[in-house]
Design a protein around this nucleic acid. Sequence first.
DNA 1: ATCTTGACTTGCC
DNA 2: CGGCAAGCCAAGA
Length: 130
Amino acid sequence: MKKENPFQLRVLEIVRAIPRGRVLTYGQVALLAGAPRGARQVGRILYATGREHRIPWQRVINRYGGISTYKIGSGHEQRALLEAEKVEFTKDGNVNLLKHQWRPSPAAMEKLELPEEVVFMINDRLPFSK
DNA sequence: ATCTTGACTTGCC
DNA sequence: CGGCAAGCCAAGA
């Protein structure tokens, strides 16, 4: 990516902060980055810059706890990377978000300057499950 | 300037 | 639940 705008940098910063064995959805990353409807942008940003910034791009999945990267050919790699850090998958290939979703600690919130309300939102709204 | 295209999400049947 | 349409919005053409 040629020019990196503030939103992109912010997204990368947040994804980089996701600990091993934890995941976040595209929508949650967008929310934490200050763009409530920016889920698609998050995906696009990771597609464009994820691999070159030493970013744990595998820790970002979709709203259903599923892998969205099969369509671009990185699906199996993503799942393998997650399993290598002990993230469990259900029989139908999904991650239990209640169990594996990252909930930023107070220290992380301060370090990333995350507003309390948005963290409250991702911590409190129960993940969609089918 | 306009149109198309998605690593998405939500809501309505 | 499951499927599908509509919303979303920045990039690329």
